[in-house]
Design a protein around this nucleic acid. Sequence first.
DNA 1: TGCATATAGTACCATATCGCACTATATAGT
DNA 2: ACTATATAGTGCGATATGGTACTATATGCA
Lengths: 151, 151
Amino acid sequence: MPEHEFSKYFQLFNEIGILEQLSRAMLEARLPTGLLASHFSVINHLIRVQDGRTPVELARAFQVAKTTMTHTLSGLEKHGFIEMRANPDDKRSKCVWLTDQGRAFRQNAIRGLEPDFHNLLDALSPEDIDATLPNLTKLRMFMDKARDKPS
Amino acid sequence: MPEHEFSKYFQLFNEIGILEQLSRAMLEARLPTGLLASHFSVINHLIRVQDGRTPVELARAFQVAKTTMTHTLSGLEKHGFIEMRANPDDKRSKCVWLTDQGRAFRQNAIRGLEPDFHNLLDALSPEDIDATLPNLTKLRMFMDKARDKPS
DNA sequence: TGCATATAGTACCATATCGCACTATATAGT
DNA sequence: ACTATATAGTGCGATATGGTACTATATGCA
């Protein structure tokens, strides 16, 4: 692979890394003290795919260690945003259910982000996003699929 | 801001977050045990902007806490990849200098990434990157500029 | 010059994340 | 049914990162 081509992928991942940091900071600035992007992401995921997921399913979805997910969930439970109930299908397992407060937490965070996103209209139009997002999705799906294969 | 527009920004940052995690894992798989993406990034930055930077300059460049950078640098020093020398212009301060081993560490990591990037050709062509990268750069520069302003 | 304030680096503590090991339960093969 | 193996969740220890407070030095201003 020629240097100039290598460099393009390198730059792409570099921008992605910086943007991740900036966007995480933007989100966390809108969250109550003690709550992080990881907490929001889990709640948001439970809304999207329906709650009742098990901790292991969530850990896989976010590609974090099981123990990390246990820790994140215990924080969410302490805030009353989720409830852990027994899994009727598997006595080893539990299911995670959203509470009304958990749903409200998500709504408030999203409402808080709206002015931030509004500001971004000056930097990147919705049409720009339309031109960008499909490529990122394509790359993400490929890397996601490839992640467990041998190198 | 209408919901479908809000949703575009939301999806964009979601993809960015997932891609950051996947690409970090890809990089770290190519690094020697005990070395993380943060270590590589600092060495890489020192190559790009010339070494001799101070820890505070590096912390600002990566937007991490000063203490985090101290910790990362101490790891790099332990591996013999950098040297910390007194700053002749400021007795409070130090300068970070690359060693030959530090430069070799970067070269090896980059060489290791080449097959990974090669595989990505199937997912995202260099032309796709050309269509994507400028938008990401635009967004990153805007957010970077906005990050210290009041909301 | 002298003093107030700002900055660089670090020690210390809190928390997030991860890997390992363990228990309880589930699943597969006989 | 029995046994071997796999899986779910958690306790524990290690490390990465961030915040606070401190010391030494720099800078700005009277």
